[in-house]
Every structure is written in structure tokens, then in C-alpha cells.
Amino acid sequence: MNPFVHKSLVVQLQANGTERFPVLAHLSYDADDPFAVTAVFSHDGRVLARWKLDREMLGDGLEGPVGIGDVRFRPVSSGPWEELCMEFYGNAHPDGGRHHAAVFVWAPAVAAFLRQTHDVVAPGEEELGVDDFLAEVIAGG
């Protein structure tokens, strides 16, 4: 089985109170980093941001609000359209405010992507390989 899952989606970005505009989101999963999903947001061939997201938290965000730090997820419903709102907070400004961006993505697409990752590494079956890493460090030092 392929240890990688990748999905590209058109999403809506809303930054610092602007109107939403479309950007590409590239979601990827690698079984070697089983707890993480990498999200790369791009527009006109330029990478706008790259985030490592917690796979379980991403799934939980489809059901209800999660996160209290720099990354937060929550479901948003606008009639028949079900979205996941992914909020990202940056460093503080001198005035006390923070950069803030929200990405709105079609929730069923995220759910389908997560199901594919679960086919690669089922929830609860993740392994870190810490023992192998420590053995390498000890053997080399």
C-alpha cells in the first residue's frame, strides 16, 4: 500500500477581514509522520503558507470547534454547504493584535482525505519510532 496520500483542493482564504478569495490547498499525509497532515496553501504559483496539522484535531474540527492556540478548526454550515473553517494566528503586532487568516474548505473533501489517511495508518495504530531514533543516537554517540 502507498504510504502517501495527497489531495489538492480549491479553498477560500480570508485574511485580516478581507473578502474571501480562492487559493489552492495541497494536503499531504506520509505514514512516516503518522500524526501529521501537511497543508500547503498557494496562489499564482507562490507558496503562501505551510502548516503541519494534527490529523486527529483536523478530524475533530469537522464535528465541533477545536484548538486554543495558533491553529483552530470549526465546522461552518451555510445551508446545504458544509465547510471546515481552519483559522491560523500569527505573531503579535506591537499594538497587541495578531495576524489572522481563515481558510474555508468543503468539509466532505477533508473527510474523504482523512478516510484515505486512515486506510494507510488507522487511528490508534500510529507509531513514532522513538526507540529506533534513540538507538541510532546512542550508537552514533
Rank of each mutant, 00 (worst) to 15 (best):
H93A: 07
T18A: 11
V71I: 15
R98E: 13
V121G: 01
F104H: 09
V130R: 12
L58P: 11
G67Y: 13
S8V: 10
L53F: 12
L58S: 12
G97H: 05
P75F: 04
V10H: 08
G124W: 07
E87C: 05
P94V: 05
R98N: 09
K52E: 09
A101M: 05
T38P: 00
P75G: 04
F35S: 12
V66S: 07
H118E: 07
G129L: 03
L13V: 15
D44C: 07
R98P: 05
H93T: 08
E19D: 10
Q116R: 10
H100G: 01
V47K: 08
W106Q: 08
A107L: 05
P3G: 05
V121P: 01
A15Y: 09
A112S: 13
G69L: 04
I68A: 14
W81R: 12
D131E: 14
F4C: 01
D33S: 07
L114Y: 04
F113D: 03
I68Y: 12
A122C: 02
L134H: 02
F133R: 03
V137S: 01
V76F: 12
A135M: 00
A102T: 12
L9I: 12
G129K: 03
P94L: 04
L53M: 15
P108Y: 05
G17I: 04
F21R: 14
E83C: 13
V110W: 07
D131P: 02
S77Q: 14
E82Q: 12
L13S: 11
L128E: 10
H26D: 15
E127R: 13
K7D: 12
L84K: 05
A109W: 01
G96P: 03
L62P: 10
A49C: 09
V76I: 13
A139K: 00
P123Q: 05
Q14I: 14
L48T: 11
D33A: 07
V5C: 05
D33V: 08
H6T: 09
G96V: 07
L84Y: 08
H43R: 15
L48D: 10
H118Y: 13
E83P: 00
V37N: 02
D44Q: 14
A109C: 01
D33T: 08
D32I: 00
E87Q: 15
S78W: 06
E82V: 00
M1K: 03
G61P: 08
V37E: 04
G79S: 03
L13D: 06
G141K: 00
V5Q: 06
F113Y: 03
A122I: 04
R98S: 10
H118A: 06
F21N: 08
G61N: 11
H43T: 13
D95V: 00
G45T: 13
D54Q: 13
R50E: 15
V71Y: 07
L53P: 11
P22Y: 02
G67W: 10
V47Q: 14
H6A: 07
S42N: 10
H100D: 02
T18N: 06
W106P: 01
F104W: 11
Q116P: 01
R74G: 08
F4N: 01
Q12P: 00
A112R: 12
A107S: 12
E56A: 15
P22E: 06
D95M: 00
E136I: 00
R98A: 06
A111L: 06
E63V: 11
G141I: 02
E87K: 08
G69Y: 05
R74W: 13
D70L: 04
V40Q: 14
M1F: 03
G67F: 13
W106E: 14
